[in-house]
Design a protein around this nucleic acid. Sequence first.
DNA 1: CAACAAGTAAACTAAACAGTTTACATGGGG
DNA 2: CCCCATGTAAACTGTTTAGTTTACTTGTTG
Lengths: 207, 207
Amino acid sequence: MSVLKPAQLSVSATKRRQIVDAAIAEFQENGFAGTSMDRITERACVSKRTVYNHFENKEALFHAIIELIFEQFSETVTLSYIPGKPLRPQLVELGRAEGKLLMSESFMRLVRMAMGETMRDPALAVKMNERAEACTVFSCFMAGARDAGAMPGIDPAEVSEQFLGLIKARAFWPYVLRSNAIDAETMEAIVQSSVETIMARFAPDTE
Amino acid sequence: MSVLKPAQLSVSATKRRQIVDAAIAEFQENGFAGTSMDRITERACVSKRTVYNHFENKEALFHAIIELIFEQFSETVTLSYIPGKPLRPQLVELGRAEGKLLMSESFMRLVRMAMGETMRDPALAVKMNERAEACTVFSCFMAGARDAGAMPGIDPAEVSEQFLGLIKARAFWPYVLRSNAIDAETMEAIVQSSVETIMARFAPDTE
DNA sequence: CAACAAGTAAACTAAACAGTTTACATGGGG
DNA sequence: CCCCATGTAAACTGTTTAGTTTACTTGTTG
């Protein structure tokens, strides 16, 4: 039992990394049922037994990977409302952060695959449910704005859902269904227009 | 070659119907890769050769079915703007029609599966792209409202996308990802609030 | 009713798959 | 320096799959 510090290359748990990387790619490209352990093995440049030493079976490998990717992305959008500063530019900033995530090729591939698998695998749906609390960031932001008097009397959950909805309607949804990539310019316009709508409804007096 | 009129039971193209029904169920339950032709055969109470007489292969059967279901649903939301009548109740009506579709169990199952398959099958993405023009209904409605002076100066596409986005953010998206069913009461509240927001932004003077 | 299109059951092929086993290699810590 | 965690290659099991073939039956139409 080695007691290596995490920063080190940990000998040949590099293997684990190779497996995980290969599995991510394969699952993203072919979904769960469409991916074979043999292909993962080959892509990872690793023996099949090694794969089964690290992960009990295909299902376990799949779940480990979903967990991992969600972890990686849940750290992306982190902003909170700063009292005193005007609301509009802060909303724009928040929208841009979300936009950046939605423009990530790999994130979108993951989401598309995961959606398709929630049907086959109810446990995955539960996992996604828990992780989907990234939306909490938005909710907390709106609560902060309300408490500071910038958006008096609103329901933070409702406003954050509407704001996210406006952005996703044009930046996320079309991308998921039709593989329409979105350029930075369009994304900026979407964010601006979404902020405009939210302000008109929930902070009409400002400005 | 029989020349039977469509209304008739067309002898044993009943078989075709059985195959299609079974395939719809299996594909919705297990996705493309997860579905076997044998299971379709069995569920259809039909011989395997019969399946292959009607559809060249699994892929062809899958595409025929996607086509079919989209056809079936593209007729659901059909409303156009009526000049003279006030805008708000008409928007509510439009929102309710969309809501009804989103509350359909079978439609949502299809969408979830289809999303997962768009990755594996680019041709499917193209097909969904074409079909997604159901959104045209919304766009035309908004254009009608603009031309009648109810929402002056708007971009119909933008408004329709925002309206749809607001509804889907709470009625569609959570359902897709987390299998959260939505009751009629909640749906009505969502429609009302979405209309409110759209009015605040794009028709503020009215009322 | 004869003939043919369409259906049936069941066995078959060839490939892919998840997961196991075997016999062997290696390299780093005690 | 020796030992054992861990890794490797490759063959193997048992199952599942898409798609074919064969020998036979049925129902509709001319």
